[in-house]
Simulated assay, not measured.
Amino acid sequence: MPTPILVVDDSAMARKMLIRALPANWDIEITHACNGIEALAAYRKGKADVMFLDLTMPLMDGYSVLEVLQKEGLNSYVVVVSADIQPLARERVRQLGAAAFVQKPVKASDIEIILREYGIAL
């Protein structure tokens, strides 16, 4: 059975680049979201065992998504994907429950390392 993956970014190009960086042999079903509101709706429909989440988006940013997930006790493996590499941003997303942080532009090798650390068989 494919793993439900949610790719959340307001940029279609960024979503495409991230999807290209995912392991080719990983059995997945990908859902896209352009903002945090769409991301939470997709999560609630079971589309996000693993979520790749941008921080800066309109309507609802990635920080707010993480806050809702934490507050409601929702369980998803969240990898934050952001150009904001400041230590405070990294620390804040960790406190909000993100499992990992990847800098944009995403490298396939970085994604694979993170997934293997999580225990996902590729």
Rank of each mutant, 00 (worst) to 15 (best):
M57H: 02
M57A: 01
P58T: 10
P58G: 13
L59G: 00
L59K: 11
L59F: 12
M60R: 06
M60W: 02
Y63D: 03
Y63P: 01
V65P: 09
L66V: 09
E67K: 13
V68M: 03
V68G: 06
V68T: 11
L69Q: 01
L69W: 07
L69H: 07
K71F: 13
E72K: 08
L74W: 11
N75K: 13
Y77W: 10
Y77G: 03
Y77N: 10
V78T: 04
V79N: 05
V79G: 08
V80A: 02
V80M: 05
V80K: 00
V80H: 01
V81Q: 01
V81L: 06
S82Q: 06
A83Y: 09
D84G: 00
D84E: 10
I85D: 11
Q86K: 12
P87S: 12
P87W: 12
P87E: 14
P87N: 09
A89N: 08
R90C: 14
E91M: 15
R92N: 13
R92L: 15
V93P: 05
Q95N: 13
Q95R: 14
L96G: 06
L96P: 00
G97L: 04
G97E: 01
G97D: 01
G97F: 07
A98D: 04
A98R: 04
A99V: 10
A99K: 14
A100Q: 10
A100H: 10
A100S: 11
F101N: 00
F101K: 01
V102N: 04
V102C: 07
V102F: 06
K104E: 11
P105I: 05
V106R: 00
V106M: 00
K107F: 12
K107V: 10
A108I: 05
S109R: 09
S109P: 00
D110S: 07
I111M: 08
E112P: 02
I113K: 14
